[in-house]
Amino acid sequence: MIQTFAFYLFATIVLLSGAFTIFAKNPVHSVLWLILAFFNAAGLMVLAGAEFIAMLLVIVYVGAVAVLFLFVVMMLDIDFAELRAGFARYLFFGIVLAVFLAIELVLGLEAFRAGAIKLGTATSAPVDAAVPNLEAIGALLYTKYVFLFEAAGLILLVAMIGAIVLTHRKRSGTRPQNVAKQVRRRPQDAVRNLTPEIGQGVDL
């Protein structure tokens, strides 16, 4: 009973906030609606028994990806009046894109009706409900799907290096901390004990 209620609650909010993400005039509001959609999708994942995926949705998507979207929205510096001014100009391309999307949708639906793809045989039954979610994922991810896992690591590496190459600039005139130099400095290099005469002062 409560599961059914929770499912319909989460699903309704996901659909509504997804629609608001598209229809919101202000991109910042769009991102906020998207965050709400992510949260409720996490709730749906919990209902489906995939707790780890739910936590990942909250940590990675809400915590990091949505923040990145906000950054992008802030960095684009969109002028809303200018954005709307181009509506008639881009209408043609918009319609072309929409037609292609509609064709893809129809094709996808037809392919779905044609039946399941036979890629291989289903080897095992779904994981026993008594096994914790995290353990079940771990047991498969690091043994059977090891190549996909390492490929994911390589993709992350490429993303990291690409982001650095694209956005990092050497700035002149900056004085970064040199830890090795700081640690190497000894008291005898830096400190002098003097006993100056009265009224003589100190040479620096």
Partner: peptide, 18 residues
């Protein structure tokens, strides 16, 4: 950089448990 290391940490959890 935060996202990438966040994902790395996320992959560590199932590994540590199993």
């Amino acid at each position: 950089l935060f996202i990438i290391f966040d994902l790395e940490a996320a992959f560590l959890f199932p590994w540590a448990v199993s």
